[in-house]
Simulated assay, not measured.
Amino acid sequence: MADVNRGNRPLSPFMIGPYYRPQMTSMSSIMVRITGIASLISMFFVVCWFLAAATSPEAFKMIDGIYTSWIGNAAVFLATWALWFHMLGRLRHVVWDFGYLLDVETSEKMGWGMFIGATILSVLTAIVFLVC
């Protein structure tokens, strides 16, 4: 049967604005995708660090100097946050795949928990890294 209202409704939930109200579940899902890509990019920089270490002491000193600067520390912290957030998002999807916690209220709480949990876990990781 033909859908006669097809032209009267938005075509995509990504039309954020007057057509679509952002929800915690959709924003956290989009962020899982973004953090997955960010984690892949951060792994490129880890490989660069290893290659510099294998190449020469001068190359390692240069790359390590960048990574231990304030901007490098900020990038490492954000990469850590991305890894934790992505891990928590994957864990949320495993729970959903088993058919648990699918109601909207609980899903929104899980979305907030991902943002808060990733932040807390990143701070704890930074503290452990600084202590050791």
Rank of each mutant, 00 (worst) to 15 (best):
I37Q: 10
M31P: 02
Y20G: 02
G17K: 01
F45Q: 05
I37G: 03
C48E: 12
P18S: 13
F50T: 04
T25G: 05
M24S: 09
Q23R: 15
P18D: 14
S39N: 11
M31I: 12
M15D: 07
S39I: 08
I34W: 12
M43A: 15
L51T: 13
V46C: 07
P18M: 07
M31K: 04
F14R: 10
T35M: 06
I16P: 00
F44V: 15
S26P: 00
S26W: 00
F45E: 08
F14W: 12
F44Q: 09
V32Y: 01
S29Q: 01
A52P: 01
C48M: 13
I16H: 02
R33F: 09
V32H: 08
V46Q: 13
S39V: 06
Y19S: 05
M31F: 10
S39K: 04
Y19M: 07
R33Q: 08
G17A: 00
M15Y: 11
Q23N: 10
W49D: 13
S42M: 06
G36K: 08
T25W: 09
I34M: 12
S28P: 00
S28Q: 02
F44H: 10
C48V: 10
I37W: 06
M43Y: 12
L40H: 05
F45K: 01
P18W: 08
L40Y: 05
I37K: 07
Y20E: 13
V46I: 11
Y20K: 09
W49I: 07
S42T: 07
S39M: 15
L51V: 14
V46G: 07
I16T: 06
M43T: 11
A52E: 02
Q23P: 07
M24T: 10
L51G: 14
F45G: 11
P18C: 07
I41F: 11
L40E: 03
A38M: 02
V32S: 00
F45R: 00
T35V: 02
A52S: 09
I30R: 03
S26Q: 06
S26G: 10
G17T: 08
P18R: 15
Y20S: 14
Y19D: 12
M27N: 02
I41N: 02
F44P: 07
M24L: 11
M43F: 15
I41Y: 05
T25D: 06
F44D: 04
Y20P: 00
S29Y: 00
F44M: 14
M43N: 08
G36H: 11
M15T: 12
I37Y: 11
Y19T: 12
P18A: 13
V47M: 14
W49N: 08
F44A: 15
V47Q: 06
A52Y: 03
V32C: 04
M27C: 07
